[in-house]
Simulated assay, not measured.
Amino acid sequence: IGLEPPERRIGQLGHDLQMAAGTRKLILTRALRNGTAPTVASRWLQRLLAVGGPSLANDLRSRGRDLIDWAGRIDQGQSVPNAPRPSPKPPAELQPKKYSFSEVGRLRRDPYAIYARHILRLDPIAPFNLDPGPAERGSLYHRIVDRFVREEKTGEPLSLIDRILHEEFDAVALPPHIDAVW
């Protein structure tokens, strides 16, 4: 049906990295540890160091030492005491009388989440600039098929589906990198 293979996205990410590396001032970093476990350098970095040899590796490390020292100084500032943990105590008449099964566990783990949801009536904010996922893709495809089945079939079916596709894709206004694949 014309979907792009997953390898294309990996290749695109590699291309984007190389394009970004063309800037005048560039700092490439990597984590040496993930929690308590050591990490492995990416294949790209391993190949770069293999081609550049020990002199490149030493040069990169020596130029990076200043940046590491500067980053370490951030933690050397004055100690600031932590803010006290929120402990809301709403009046009994505002407290929920019933909890759903899933909220009981949440009440033990994070009572503030229950307070924010039921007392303050706050809903979680959707993550900013989040790419649409499989659910949004499925909903879009279902709307397209539903419209195609319901709309009156006058004229050529291919022109009808083409018009519906353009209208639905225009309505959701997907980011260009998603629109091209979907």
Rank of each mutant, 00 (worst) to 15 (best):
R61I: 13
R61P: 00
S62D: 14
S62W: 03
S62M: 14
S62P: 03
R63C: 07
R63E: 12
G64Y: 13
G64W: 14
R65E: 15
R65I: 11
D66R: 04
D66I: 05
L67N: 07
I68S: 04
D69L: 08
A71H: 07
G72I: 04
G72N: 14
R73I: 00
I74E: 07
Q76W: 09
Q78L: 09
Q78R: 15
Q78E: 06
S79D: 03
P81F: 00
P81V: 11
P81S: 03
A83P: 13
P84W: 01
R85N: 01
R85H: 05
R85M: 02
P86C: 02
P86H: 01
P86K: 02
S87A: 14
P88A: 00
P90H: 02
P90A: 01
P90L: 04
P91K: 15
P91G: 07
P91Q: 15
P91I: 13
E93T: 12
E93H: 11
Q95A: 14
Q95V: 10
P96N: 06
P96K: 05
P96I: 04
K98F: 09
K98P: 00
Y99E: 03
Y99N: 01
Y99P: 12
S100D: 13
S100F: 03
S100L: 10
S100A: 12
S100E: 13
F101R: 06
F101K: 08
F101P: 03
F101W: 11
F101N: 06
F101A: 09
S102F: 06
S102N: 10
S102A: 08
E103G: 05
E103V: 06
V104T: 12
G105M: 10
R106A: 14
L107V: 10
R108H: 11
R108F: 15
R109T: 13
D110V: 06
D110M: 03
D110K: 02
P111N: 14
Y112K: 07
Y112E: 15
Y112A: 10
A113I: 02
A113E: 12
I114Q: 04
Y115P: 03
R117H: 13
R117P: 01
R117N: 08
H118E: 11
I119F: 01
I119R: 05
L120N: 05
R121P: 00
R121Y: 00
R121W: 00
L122V: 08
D123F: 00
D123S: 14
P124M: 01
P124R: 03
P124H: 03
I125P: 11
I125K: 11
A126Y: 00
